[in-house]
Write a protein that binds this DNA or RNA. Structure first.
Length: 820
RNA sequence: GCGGGCGUGGCGGAAUCGGCAGACGCGUCGGACUUAGGAUCCGAUGUCCUCGGACGUAAGGGUUCAAGUCCCUUCGCCCGCACCA
């Protein structure tokens, strides 16, 4: 028998598959399509184990669906713009495009070595002008629809990356990419109006039944919708007003102070001229200089100073002091808050510290409260008290009543607030898609005409860390003529956030070579939405939220006809080794290519699918890899042994020996298990373990005669079941003993009748403890098993002298005799 | 603090609807084959045991004929959000 030699046979089949593009997807209206997608990688240089896991999962599903008759599209590409390419340029003068394309070349080679069933003709590389031309075109579409605008704002700035960041890219006050502290900077920047879609993005989360609950909840929290009211306090002896936002209008009579964020525009006016102006100003400066992390941490001690000025509560004309504090978030709501110490924990702490008045306005209906005996705020709903004409109203109803009053008296209105902010998309970096805007002295902001797209990246630039956008150093790029008036103009020198590029790539795959539109509407509608998306949880908000936003805008622009881009989402766990995530700094990195060199891609794939269920973190084990390799050798050997028995004659089940019947039953059982584990449960690990059981069962016949037709049937089923997991070895063995490609065969089907055994073992329990077993024909009813169980000597022995209280019989499973 | 998840042998993990806990793999031990084995094949492997059994799914309690699974309390770990008014 020839030895199993993965290196040569894997190469052979890869050359064939990718040489003829075996996995080409073509539209076929007569077939159900299945869009299987894994998150596209950043071309960092080489694939890591997380990639291997992600893509192996997708590949099993794509191949499985294809064998089940679906018209599968399974594309791959590269999210190729971004900082690392530019950093390479800064560090050692590499050209970002050359650096990127050589990384892509290497990673494509590695992906092919993994035997992944991609249709490479559909590849999308986001830094190709053919691609970013349409990214720019989409920006213009957003602009024309009023969804892209430039404004000056305090934005997140990362010194280390030398660029601004979107809110979603700031994690714990630090840059998502380089982990450096982010600070605020006032700049004029481009934004996409994602907040216009906040309500729909929130509501449609309910449609995403195929998404993990935690991802939906994270998005829900991120959008952070809250309903309340906005109204204004008048500043005493002045025309100024202080608008505040509250979700508790029912507590409006309990306001005893108003608090402003240090950044609030009115602060300067209020404090100037106060006797303690110097002290106040110094406090305001201290708060302004606090880092965002410190400022937004609930544990930071609440501090404040009385400005010396009073405000007037519009509902009862009560005069309350205005304080400036460190605990109001300037960016949320109006940057000013009404202080209701009796019914808000933060206000309680603040009022206690500075000895401010507390007024109870919502009482506990079950147990009346006394403000002097409370030791924290009462935040539950209840009965309104001390609230003028609202006294006695249920506080939930009171919310509405108070807002009605505010609206009627023209001092306030209903207001919905979101945590979600507009998406800041400009980046002061080179390696991204240029924003297709021209600034003309006469005409102002002008879109680059569509027929002049793409706005190409220039090559005459200087790369410098922390400088302005490198594009501004290019004369050829900067100077241009105005498309409207033909006069002198200059270009926008910022590029777009790379998350824009990856917000629509899955749509481009459906029509990757289109040169008159980003994609054709019929094609995108045929293939999309993505039936199964697979990737890491780190994109729970960023990429997944942006992509949903894009899809909705493109639907409104009638470019496509669906609301949500990804019907089902699977978030795979991390790959761990020695108790920590694999990372260069920890020195616990395993390179997939190393494993492929040593054992072959099939072993690498099998191990990573077998070691843990997809969503759980996976512990890398070198010995576990050996085990997977051993299994494939066992398959190789037993299939070759079985092939000696092969015959084409049909067999009759009755004519089989007991052991042959058992093998046949295990085969059917395994097909059922594998079909359900892949198709319904995403439990690839148990699918593999059941196939291992089948292979173990086959070993009974390694030195025992076996019906040739059954041998053939078992091997055929096994190879077809294994094919999605280990495509090379199965293709090789299939080609030796059968016709065509194993990957073009249909997935084996099972016969439920072939799985059931004639006889079943029934567990005998006394008081719930297993005390024996009996073998009975299957399908007996309750009464029959119960009767039979009571005649068993073991049961008689253990129940003698005791009273049988009850007997529970579960057909084909167990009998439990309850005795006293 | 709020939200979500998890806790099962020496290890990774099974147990899908409340019905035999520990499938499958790793490791370990034993056997066969062999000049040899770190190859291959076969077998054993939760703990304790007086060999009858007893105990056992983070801890404690509850429901049930029956609980890893359902309910309550506690502990521990992981992830996300966090002064959002």
């Amino acid at each position: 028998m020839e030895k199993y030699n993965p290196a040569s046979l894997e190469k052979k089949w890869q050359d064939k598959w990718f040489g003829e593009n075996s996995f080409r997807a073509t539209e076929d209206a007569g077939k159900d399509e299945f869009y299987c997608l894994e998150m596209l990688p950043y071309p960092s240089g080489s694939c890591h184990c997380g990639h291997l896991r992600n893509y192996a999962l997708g590949d099993v599903l794509a191949r499985f669906k294809s064998m089940n008759g679906f018209n599968v599209i399974h594309p791959m590409g590269f999210d190729a713009f971004g900082m690392p390419a530019e950093n390479a340029a800064i560090a050692h003068g590499a050209r970002p495009d050359q650096w990127t394309y050589s990384n892509i070349e290497n990673m494509e080679r590695q992906l092919k070595r993994m035997g992944l069933s991609y249709d490479w003709e559909r590849e999308a590389i986001t830094c190709n002008p053919d691609y970013y031309r349409w990214t720019q075109w989409l920006f213009e579409l957003f602009y024309k629809r009023g969804l892209a605008y430039k404004k000056e704002a305090a934005v997140n700035w990362c010194d280390s990356c030398g660029t601004v960041l979107a809110n979603e890219q700031v994690i714990d006050g630090k840059c998502w990419r380089c982990d450096h502290e982010v600070h605020k900077k006032n700049l004029a920047q481009w934004f996409l109006k994602i907040t216009d879609y906040a309500d729909e993005l929130l509501a449609d989360l309910d449609k995403l039944k195929g998404w993990p609950e935690r991802v939906r909840i994270m998005q829900e929290n991120w959008i952070g919708r809250s309903e309340g009211a906005e109204f204004s306090f008048a500043v005493e002896n002045s025309d100024d007003k202080i608008p505040v936002y509250t979700t508790r209008p029912d507590t409006i009579f309990g306001v005893t102070f108003v608090v402003l964020a240090a950044e609030h525009p009115l602060v300067e006016k209020l404090i100037s001229g106060q006797p303690n102006e110097v002290e106040l100003r110094s406090f305001v400066e201290t708060v302004k200089n606090m880092s965002d992390v410190e400022k937004t941490n609930a544990d930071t001690e609440k501090k404040g100073m009385f400005t010396g000025v009073y405000a007037v509560n519009p509902i009862n004309n009560k005069r309350v002091p205005i304080w400036v504090t460190n605990y109001v978030v300037y960016e949320y709501g109006t940057g000013a808050v009404m202080g209701v110490p009796a019914h808000d924990e933060r206000d309680w702490m603040f009022a206690t510290k500075y000895n401010l008045e507390k007024i109870l306005v919502v009482d506990n209906p079950k147990k009346p409260l006394d403000i002097n005996e409370m030791d924290n705020a009462y935040i539950e709903p209840g009965l309104m008290v001390n609230s003028g004409s609202f006294t006695g109203t249920d506080s939930v109803k009171g919310k509405r009543a108070v807002v009605d009053w505010l609206e009627k008296n023209n001092v306030g209105k209903r207001k919905v607030n979101y945590h979600l902010r507009d998406w800041l998309i400009s980046r002061q970096r080179y390696w991204g898609a240029p924003i297709p805007i021209i600034y003309c002295d006469k005409c102002g902001e002008v879109l680059v005409p569509e027929d002049q797209l793409p706005v190409l990246l220039p090559t005459d630039v200087e790369f410098k860390q922390g400088a302005l956008s490198p594009l501004s150093t290019s004369k050829s790029f900067n100077d241009c003529t105005c498309p409207k008036c033909g006069g002198h103009a200059h270009r926008e020198t910022d590029t777009m956030d790379t998350f824009i590029c990856s917000s629509w790539y899955y749509l481009r795959y459906t029509d990757p070579h289109n040169d008159h539109a980003p994609f054709d509407r019929d094609k995108v509608n045929y293939w999309s939405p993505v039936d199964q998306y697979i990737g890491g949880i780190e994109h729970a908000i960023l990429h997944l939220l942006y992509s949903r936003f894009f899809t909705k805008v493109l639907r409104d622009a009638e470019l496509l006809d669906f609301d949500e881009p990804f019907t089902n989402l699977l978030c795979q766990g991390m790959v761990i080794k020695d108790g920590a995530k694999m990372s260069k700094s920890k020195g616990n990195v395993v390179s997939p290519e190393e494993i492929i060199d040593k054992y072959g891609a099939d072993t690498a794939r099998l191990f990573i699918l077998f070691a843990a269920p997809p969503e759980r973190d996976l512990d890398w084990s070198d010995q576990g890899v050996e085990g997977s390799f051993r299994f494939l050798n066992r398959v190789w050997r037993i299939v070759n042994i079985f092939s000696e028995y092969f015959s084409d004659e049909a067999y009759s089940v009755e004519g089989l020996t007991v052991e042959e019947k058992n093998l046949r039953r295990v085969m059917h059982r395994t097909i059922k298990k594998v079909t359900e584990d892949i198709g319904e449960r995403f439990m690839f690990n148990t699918a593999i373990s059941s196939m291992m059981e089948l292979v173990n069962e086959m070993h009974v016949f390694q030195d025992k005669p076996l019906n040739g037709a059954l041998a053939r049937e078992v091997v055929s089923s096994l190879l077809r079941m294994l094919a999605p997991f280990v495509p090379h070895i199965t293709e090789e063995l299939w080609s030796k003993f059968f016709d065509g490609s194993v990957h073009k065969q249909s997935f084996p089907t099972f016969d439920e009748a072939a799985i059931v055994e004639d006889e079943v073992e029934i567990v005998l329990q006394i008081n719930g403890k297993v005390r024996g077993r009996m073998t009975l024909p299957r399908g007996l009813d309750r009464e029959a098993i119960e009767k039979l169980a009571l005649t068993q000597s073991r049961v008689k022995e253990l129940t003698s002298g005791k009273t049988i209280v009850k007997v529970i019989a579960v057909p084909d499973k167990l009998v439990n005799v309850v005795v006293k």
